[in-house]
Design a protein around this nucleic acid. Structure first.
Lengths: 133, 133
DNA sequence: CTAGGTGCAAAAGGTTTGCGGTTAA
DNA sequence: TTAACCGCAAACCTTTTGCACCTAG
């Protein structure tokens, strides 16, 4: 696990939560992380999982993904990317940009605005769900 | 107010809620819509406001805006656009793309995926809040 | 007349918080 | 040693739902 900013303690709970998110390829939500961590650290509480996920996000070790009103999901991929969300099965896939250039340069922003983050989510049906229908 | 799909009734509540969203330039959330509608139709309930906002969204008369976990906000602008969200004051501004072309064509999608919607949100500080700091 | 809509209150679902006890450094 | 952290339960906030009453068409 990467290092935490100075002053912040490394704890079993933080290590285990990070480990679960880092090794999950399905962008789990807090409840799913809780279920998985419990197998290795049965005494952990859901509140702690929420707190740790928030902490890890603020430290930049993981990212939060919000799609509509669904439960927040967590992503260990720190590269610049976006997400494709299947509205049929709920699967979230990391997607990358073709070509280069700042996304925010392609939008007419209010004069003087400062951009600090860009959230892009494409929604639709994943190949499996397209197949089924 | 535009027409509702066949079979759907026009009611005072639906008309008033639509009117409020259509004439609001600040992308109000359900609670704000409720407060504003109450001035003209004091007996309306918050649950009805939620139900009507959902109905109008499903009919394509308004759009829902979700930024992180904040309360859903509503937008009467049906043109193809995105939103700029000021993390300091919470203001949401409609923004438009420079140039043309499908956004989804610029991403490496899973093979066979079908895209039905694209959500883009830029976050940062609006000109007023940049000025202050 | 009657299917669909509304108002109310209660519940759901996700997330945060207060507090007393625990632990990493 | 002690400030930071954890577990628990309770609170919070937004949104949804069940049900009796109402009303547009």
């Amino acid at each position: 696990m990467p290092v935490l900013p100075g002053g912040m303690r490394m704890t079993t709970q933080r290590r285990e939560v990070y480990e679960v998110v880092a090794t999950s390829c399905d962008h789990p939500c807090a409840g799913m992380v809780f279920d998985r961590v419990k197998k290795r650290a049965p005494s952990i509480s859901l509140a702690t999982v929420y707190n740790v996920l928030e902490t890890l996000s603020r430290c930049g070790l993981i990212k939060q993904i919000n799609v509509d009103r669904d439960a927040t999901r967590y992503c260990p991929n720190l590269e610049d990317h976006a997400h494709f969300y299947c509205e049929a099965c709920g699967e979230v896939t990391d997607i990358y940009r073709k070509g280069q250039g700042n996304i925010e340069k392609r939008w007419e922003l209010p004069d003087g605005a400062r951009v600090t983050a860009v959230d892009v989510a494409l929604k639709g049906r994943c190949p499996r769900c397209v197949e089924k229908s």
